[in-house]
Design a protein around this nucleic acid. Structure first.
Lengths: 201, 201
DNA sequence: GTCTAATCTTGACAGTGTCAAAATAAAATT
DNA sequence: AATTTTATTTTGACACTGTCAAGATTAGAC
């Protein structure tokens, strides 16, 4: 237990902030996450966080970055399993959707407008995101060789397109449009069939 | 020219508001659209808009609704063309992406979190969105008959999945992730190939 | 021409992100 | 051990946001 309290110096503000922010995020969404409320929750004054994160934007980037790391770790662990390539891909799709569904707020941060358009992604976040995408592309290449994904185009294009599809499904789920919770499984299954090469009967 | 000024009663506030709001939206994004700024632009006091729209949310819903109407009109006009079914579908995909790309802020409103998750979609907006989707499903059914889209599943599932894919691509474009402007055409092409049934050689 | 309903304004409140300057404590240096 | 430097944290302030309540102004109905 590394808990020390009531001292003027908090001792571990940076990680406390990220942790508390992640909690608020999951419970109340980004809208409920304000710098002031966050500071209050950690037990520190309004502007204290600003000495560790230049911006609210930087805080959010840090959380998103952790999300990418987590997502990549999951992919990595899946890839280390001994399993048929196709089966593995199927599992990945389910895993991806599940990640987006259970960590919706983090997912939204990772790929959402708030950081990438409205805000300014940290270079460190950009790196993490690029790396995650690169890992995906490498795997796509292999999936093409294994005839799981189509080879009608470069790994980049196939990777972009298929990932865009997964992303689209995730978004609809998260935002709750045209699609409710009960449809998840059927949709995921259908998505897999669309993405994968039709079996040569 | 229906311009009348300096009268206490504006005369045509409702539509003026929507119009001005749409302008701000396109130029500065949702972040730049505040009720106060909007009122100012129209030349009216801060709270005047609140007598025509209960909420900022309601204003946004109105804009989004107009977007759905526009989108549906475009689909309708495309459907009335005499053209091979497949070709028509291809054109639709291009058209869809182009809509999302040029009207990004409206598109974001139509399908984004701000209204559907954070806010509360107007029942009138819900209707418009549902109808747009239903029109799409009807067409999907026909596309299946024409062997343009796969028939491995119900029109609902195929429609949801393929639309999710289009949506995902649009989002990546809008938010600018993993994908830049130069990739649009190639990606759209690849998306079409993924979605459509492979030709039985 | 008076009354009523529609429309618009002023004032106010609580909340937001964030900057500048001052306060405090810990670490480094003498 | 005393002093200086650096790392932290706080208080005060500003401009901005959405929106409510109460009052002012005007248009249309009778």
């Amino acid at each position: 237990m590394t808990i020390q309290k009531k001292t003027y110096h908090h001792g571990d503000l940076i990680s406390s902030l990220i942790k508390a922010a992640s909690d608020i995020l999951q419970e109340e969404g980004v809208e409920g996450l304000s710098m002031r409320k966050l500071a209050d929750k950690v037990g520190v004054s309004r502007t204290a966080p600003y000495h560790h994160f230049k911006d609210k934007n930087e805080l959010l980037c840090a959380i998103a970055e952790a999300g990418f790391k987590a997502q990549e770790a999951r992919l990595q662990s899946l890839l280390s399993s001994h399993e048929a390539s196709e089966k593995r891909f199927h599992r990945y799709v389910y895993q991806y959707i599940e990640f987006a569904d259970t960590q919706r707020e983090v997912y939204d941060l990772m790929y959402g407008r708030l950081i990438w358009k409205t805000g300014t992604p940290t270079s460190s976040l950009k790196d993490a995101s690029k790396q995650t995408f690169k890992r995906w592309l490498d795997w796509v290449e292999q999936l093409q060789e294994d005839r799981v994904l189509p080879s009608n185009n470069s790994a980049l294009r196939v990777g972009q397109a298929s990932w865009a599809s997964l992303h689209g499904l995730s978004r609809l789920l998260i935002d709750g449009i045209y699609l409710d919770r009960n449809d998840i499984q059927a949709m995921t299954e259908q998505m897999i069939q669309t993405l994968t090469q039709p079996a040569s009967s």
